[in-house]
Amino acid sequence: MNIFRLLGDLSHLLAIIILLLKIWRTRSCAGVSGKSQILFALVFTTRYLDLFTNFISMYNSAMKLIYLVCSYATVFLMYFKFKATYDSNHDTFRMEFLVVPVGGLAFLVNHDFTPLEILWTFSIYLEAVAILPQLFMISKTGEAETITSHYLFALGSYRALYIVNWVFRFYTEGFFDLIAIVAGCVQTILYCDFFYLYITKVLKGKQLTLPA
């Protein structure tokens, strides 16, 4: 474990908590893409199948459990408890356009052709594009609530910090996982224009609005 990965995990945890609290306290999921949340729940489910078979550390197991519980709780709140506030008209990105190609790629490009490894690879590729429905929804509505932009900033920062972690691990341990690195770079690049808007607008106290 290194400081970059720890900060990355905490940023990820912060993002998940911010979103869950936003929905729970405002009792509304306006402006949030339920499809992205479903994809994130799928990412954690396919990635953490080794939760009970492969003990790394208390930290590792606890974080996996927290991510799984929070992601399913968010999906539950969005599609059941606060369903009336879910903006399905603007959350129209076709998830199958992501899941099918990612599923195919996971079969073709992986480290080891075993079920657990292919599912892990699938979760890595899927996580890289899982935010697209959310970014697409913001581009359609042309704006995002400030709390949602904080959520996205924390979520985007997490994988950017992981990239620094991978550079650090390469030089200190000689460890690198090309699949995770390439997917992590794609994932972070997808946030770039949002990062620009966040830093130039939200940090100046303005509303995050996309140029129509």
Partner: peptide, 10 residues
């Protein structure tokens, strides 16, 4: 390159 070790990252 060497196969990635145990999946110790989240």
């Amino acid at each position: 390159y060497d196969l990635p070790q145990l999946k110790d990252e989240l």
